[in-house]
């Protein structure tokens, strides 16, 4: 008696709560299979961790077909996604699950958090469920899974990422030589003078929509807060551009969904693209594949985006935004 379980991961900590519920089900019904699907820009890390902790396979979102699984679990950040999928498929749905109690004859009993109290309910399979953030934490990595993975017998993760890149980007994202600027006052000032001033003069028309903007300023999860994200609007105003966001930034509530760029959001073709705190996963980059000049501000020099950026400033996005705004006001 096994269940076919899917976990939808978007690359945020709550994914792990959903994973643990899937693993607990598998503990109880060992013949079950747990498949993890990446539906976020930053989910590659979660997918790898899922394999290290006991998932059976990790797959790209394209492979997810609603209706093929008995139970589909996701973190509480995905309540919206659940609503969309259930309305598409007409399947039963439950939110704020704290634990899954049992499974018998096509039904599943769950415990949900409803306005500060716990309620039990029974649902018929297949079911979509978002797991409450008060659910138990995820188990640690497992030595056997680590070794299995280490031996290269579970190439699903890298395969999934490669598949994604192939299907959605057609290999059109090329690796370029990137020029780096320092995050110091002088470095940012030079950057504004050398790069922004020339580019902005060339593309100085104010666009109406994000899709048609010639300058796009994008914030990722790395900007750290909604307050910092909001400063991007000041910069976009100075550069006569518009503001976009990555999936994790939207999930974190920094921006509204209509600003999302990438695989499941808007595709943009700006002449100038500046990314703050964006790591640069395929799912996001395929939404900007035809931009003119790509600039990245990221504290991690190894971030994937730097393989695609023309210019890069290595530093904390929050500090660099302030500096760029200051120098743009002086120099532009």
């Amino acid at each position: 008696m096994g269940l076919n379980i899917a976990v939808l991961a978007t690359g945020v900590p709550n994914d792990y709560k959903a994973l643990e519920q899937a693993f607990l089900l598998k503990d109880k019904y060992p013949e079950s299979k747990v498949a993890v699907f990446s539906i976020g820009a930053c989910a590659a890390g979660v997918l790898r961790e899922a394999m290290y902790r006991g998932a059976d396979e990790a797959l790209a979102s394209d492979s997810f077909v609603p209706g093929c699984h008995d139970v589909v679990l996701c973190g509480c950040q995905c309540a919206e996604e659940i609503a969309r999928l259930t309305s598409m498929t007409g399947l039963s749905c439950v939110v704020c699950v704290r634990s899954i109690l049992s499974f018998s004859s096509g039904n599943i009993a769950v415990e949900c958090v409803v306005e500060n109290s716990i309620e039990e309910s029974v649902l018929s399979l297949p079911v979509f469920a978002s797991v409450d953030s008060s659910a138990v934490s995820c188990r640690p990595r497992n030595a056997y899974c680590l070794l299995r993975h280490n031996r290269g017998k579970s190439p699903q993760v890298s395969h999934a990422v490669a598949l994604n890149a192939e299907q959605t980007c057609n290999g059109s994202v090329e690796v370029k030589e990137c020029k780096y600027y320092q995050a110091s006052d002088e470095g940012v000032r030079t950057f504004v003078k050398e790069i922004l001033r020339t580019r902005v003069l060339q593309s100085a028309d104010t666009a109406m929509s994000l899709k048609d903007s010639s300058v796009v300023v994008v914030g990722g999860y790395g900007v750290g807060s909604k307050e910092t994200f909001d400063r991007l609007f000041e910069l976009a105003h100075l550069l006569h551009g518009n503001v976009g966001a990555t999936r994790p930034a939207v999930d974190a509530g920094y921006a509204t969904r209509d600003r999302m760029i990438g695989q499941t959001g808007v595709v943009v073709r700006p002449e100038l693209y500046i990314a703050f705190g964006v790591s640069g996963h395929t799912q996001h980059l395929c939404g900007v594949k035809e931009c003119g000049v790509m600039i990245s501000v990221n504290k991690d020099a190894e971030a994937p985006i730097n393989a695609f950026a023309d210019y890069s400033i290595i530093g904390d996005a929050r500090e660099v935004i302030d500096k760029i705004i200051t120098y743009c006001q002086q120099e532009l």
């Binding site: 056997y144 899974c145 680590l146 070794l147 299995r148 280490n150 031996r151």
Partner: peptide, 14 residues
């Protein structure tokens, strides 16, 4: 055993 190493280097990495 799918978690057993196939050579020394792999064992040490494990």
């Amino acid at each position: 055993y799918d978690y057993a190493p196939t050579n020394f280097e792999e064992a040490v990495r494990g």
